[in-house]
Design a protein around this nucleic acid. Structure first.
Lengths: 219, 219
DNA sequence: CTGAAACCTGAACCATGATTCAACTCTTGA
DNA sequence: TCAAGAGTTGAATCATGGTTCAGGTTTCAG
């Protein structure tokens, strides 16, 4: 389901850098951890957090329940770890596409296309991030606040380069960032998770037209 | 927390109109049902679905646990009922504001302001709708699909009246509808639930500017 | 007034599944 | 080669909380 979660690693506790008491010390351990992580991604992706069970995760991973607790303190801990990783993965997939574009507006379009593409191939993971709102509020919040802040800065820079129009007040950048982010997330839900019949480019083009020129009738 | 949920009524099973086996038949019964419903809204709003407990709902309502099961088949049933009601409430609060505006674009702005306002005064209920994505997918889906479809139609009509610009293809209306809806939902999350320090009008104005004219630099 | 239908009550039942733990097996550095 | 230390195992423990049910109490049509 997942494949490779390049792990950092830190048991989802977020800040403090290295070796928690649960960090694997041998190659064998690292391998097992990876198995558990991927299994958890599958399990939670399919059944969701509450329906998902540790026993089943262990089974998927082909290890004993006890081994799970060798690497994670609790069910919530794996989940948090997963959220953090997913959050990173999405960004790593999308941001380069935005930067590669000739200008911010084109980047916006490329970014949405990349995002839709990512969502379509990672429906389960998408669900994990969303569900984190109810399992690990702080992680969820951090994810979106981070993305939004990045967005706001990026927009301001583009404005500095004359690529997009400015706002009235300063706080507008935040509003715009959240607005566009919401747009993308919902388009991802609708045309990524729920309905992948239409080509990604088509959606991106339509959204781009809206973002670029707005709804006001042309004079 | 809630106050008045004008109940229709149908135990959340959605379609079939009247009297399920659980419909109250006396005034006394209707009163109790109302108590339970409001209590459930509070409980789920504060603790969320999984943390929320029937025992606590009954307690809040001032009735015995058994009475709960006189009116609902299960925990999920109340939750679904709540979602359906909330969905209706939001629409009833926002739609009139949109229609009252002189044109669609002004309506968009008024609608967002009304929505933010509603969210700020109903944070708990907002959470219920969102969580339904993981407790009652179909209800969640129905809610957003309904809203989006209404949106799409409304936009097309506005186009017919020359109030907004058209799209390239026909499917664009759906894309636009989902995009704008997502925008509003996220602005609601950020500036309604998480941060209500800025005046609603300010947010609505900034969003309106974006929707109306887009990001392209003015010529 | 009266019996049946509606309602109400809350202790007890039960399923579920996260977490613990004591006994084992590998790995590895000296 | 041989301890430790690192990893592994899965049955047993335990808490939680949804749901049931047998026995009252109220309401109200006739």
């Amino acid at each position: 389901m997942t494949g490779d979660l390049g792990w950092d690693w830190n048991n989802g506790v977020t800040a403090t850098p290295q070796t928690s008491a649960k960090t694997p010390r041998t190659e064998r351990g690292r391998k097992t951890l990876r198995l558990i992580l991927d299994a958890a991604a599958e399990e939670f992706g399919i059944r969701g957090y509450h329906e998902g069970s540790i026993a089943r995760i262990a089974q998927r991973a082909g290890v004993a329940i006890g081994s799970f607790y060798t690497y994670f303190d609790s069910k919530e801990a794996v989940f948090r770890a997963l959220v953090a990783d997913m959050s990173r993965q999405v960004r790593e997939h999308v941001v380069p596409c935005i930067l590669a574009a000739p200008d911010r507006l084109a980047g916006e379009r490329a970014g949405l296309a990349a995002y839709l593409d990512f969502v379509r191939t990672h429906k389960a993971l998408y669900r994990i991030i969303d569900e984190s709102a109810f399992v690990a509020e702080d992680a969820y919040r951090r994810h979106y606040v981070d993305v939004a802040d990045g967005y706001a800065v990026s927009l301001q820079q583009a404005f500095g380069r004359g690529e997009i129009r400015g706002g009235i007040s300063d706080g507008d950048w935040q509003v715009r960032a959240w607005a566009i982010m919401g747009m993308n997330v919902f388009l991802g839900l609708k045309f990524g998770v729920w309905d992948d019949s239409r080509p990604v480019e088509e959606i991106a083009a339509a959204a781009h037209a809206l973002i670029a020129d707005g709804l006001s009738p042309p004079r």
